[in-house]
């Protein structure tokens, strides 16, 4: 299985995502340049964290017009996996790959810390290595992470089990206190209707090595390994 990480101008999580794929799970990983039209035969496309186009105008609003995004959308439409992390989640929403939008954090401040989140869906191609209710410690680092969507969209996400992760206490309780950015229903990550696009604000690629504090993000990568054939 081959990973491709898109580098937009201003991406800064591309390096971490590639290292997670290459070092932590030993898979080939290449960078995909935003001006190109070639996915280089990659099986999994990662839209990484960062500040594409400086987050100017609105996070993700400009990046989604990058040439490479045409190919990423085609890749997603044929059911192949797209992992959209942080700024990548914002790009995916802007590109229509996922419903809803990410607003400024309720605190109006950037938040960088280790958070705990609860696994809500343990059957998707991104999450089947986890068990439902499992508590993960994963870093966040964002200023615009407050997930929002129309009430009927949220109801559908909840009803169809497409909420992948929810901010929680270490004991698994969901409350305003643990909702670090004010997301609706404490949503930290969602999956599209076809089940092949995951968008999440926390950084699984920064939680793949015990030396840097957590390995709880590995499950996302391992799930992909088991669930996708090259």
């Amino acid at each position: 299985m081959k990973f491709g990480v898109v580098t937009f101008p201003g991406s800064n999580g591309d390096y971490d995502a590639c290292h997670a794929a290459a070092d932590a799970i030993g898979r080939e990983c290449v960078y995909l340049w935003h001006k190109d039209h070639d996915l280089k035969g990659c099986d999994v496309i990662v839209l990484p964290g960062g500040f594409s186009y400086g987050d100017y105008l609105r996070p993700g609003a400009i990046a989604r017009f990058s040439p490479i995004m045409n190919e990423v959308v085609v890749h997603a439409k044929r059911g192949a996996p797209v992992l959209a992390i942080c700024n990548g989640f914002q790009v995916a929403c802007e590109a229509g790959l996922l419903p809803g939008a990410l607003l400024r954090n309720a605190s109006l401040r950037f938040v960088s810390r280790l958070v705990t989140m609860r696994v809500e869906n343990d059957s998707s191609m991104f999450t089947h290595e986890y068990y439902k209710g499992q508590i993960l410690s994963v870093p966040v680092a964002h200023g615009d992470g407050r997930y929002t969507a129309d009430p009927d969209v949220v109801a559908r996400l909840e009803g169809e089990g497409r909420v992948a992760f929810r901010y929680s206490s270490t004991g698994g309780d969901v409350s305003d206190e643990d909702n670090i950015n004010g997301s609706v229903n404490g949503i930290a990550g969602i999956i599209n209707a076809a089940g092949n696009v995951l968008g999440m604000m926390p950084h699984p690629e920064r939680a793949v090595d015990p030396v840097i504090g957590s390995t709880d993000g590995l499950g996302v990568f391992h799930s992909l390994l088991d669930g996708v054939t090259a």
């Binding site: 999580g13 401040r109 950037f110 810390r113 680092a141 920064r206 793949v208």
Partner: peptide, 27 residues
């Protein structure tokens, strides 16, 4: 203050803000 700073990007930070000194691994 330091929760407003991304301290984990580039995934080398072993000890971040709040310790006696920061520690970064050398890949």
């Amino acid at each position: 203050a330091y929760q407003q700073y991304d301290s984990t990007v580039r995934t080398n930070t072993v000890i971040g803000p709040g310790g006696d000194a920061a520690v970064l691994r050398v890949r």
